[in-house]
Amino acid sequence: MHLTDRQDIEVALFTEALRKRHGYDFGQYAPASFKRRVLGLVTALHLRSVSELTERVIHDEGFIHTVIERLSVPVSELFREPQTFVALRERVLPDLASYPHLNIWQAGCAHGEEAYSMAILLREAGMYERCQIYATDFSDAALAKAQEGIYPAREMPLYLENYRKAGGTARLQDYCTEKYDLLKMHDELRANITFANHNLVSDGVFGEMHLILCRNVLIYFTDPLQDRVLGLFRDSLVRGGYLCIGIKESLSFSGVASDFHLLSRELPVFRRTATAAP
């Protein structure tokens, strides 16, 4: 049997061990990229095989945290895919401006780059004071990093470029402090962000949201899990609420597509239709 087929067996057993031993279900992750991540984890931890990983997941107390951190959504950028922020600024926020209080859910927040970008966008729109951002992830390690809001300073040129393309109206340097080789986001940006653990695979509906951002997370899910998560988003949104996904994601292959309508053909910003089931 070819190594790659033996690895498939190992990945299936590893997935089973994670579920039975720790309650994490990766069974509905898109197999090709999930296998890559698992093999990457084996390499990064200098293990011999996925089986060794499985053994440690079962017997090594505490090892699960390392595994979950590495298998969760990868690191992002400030203002990644900046054209989406232009759409939010020009099309979505003016419409939401009439609400006295706004709930925003950023699902799969990883290290928080997107939550801080959103906070900056809302400040520049003069709306941050009446917004509550819930930034969630299933990795506690990621949430702790997100709470800190510290990023490598070498990324600053990319962030500046993104911020400019996103139509930023101030200076990005006004929102963070550069010290040694690190950038720290200012505390005032964190004031209305709540970082919380939520697993899209197993947890339920999340409040009465006006806007949900979940970018480049659905690409890692199989169809059934994608549909589950989109159903969760639909049921968490107020009528007319907005859903923003990654620029290369779409609802075309989803069973809940009819519950949303696309705002603009160029950008994946959707609005929950008024008739959608509650």
Partner: peptide, 15 residues
């Protein structure tokens, strides 16, 4: 860009 078993494409923003 990845190919899945059902001969469909998958994307990833991994490292």
């Amino acid at each position: 860009l990845l190919v899945e078993r059902q001969q469909r494409f998958a994307l990833s923003v991994d490292e």
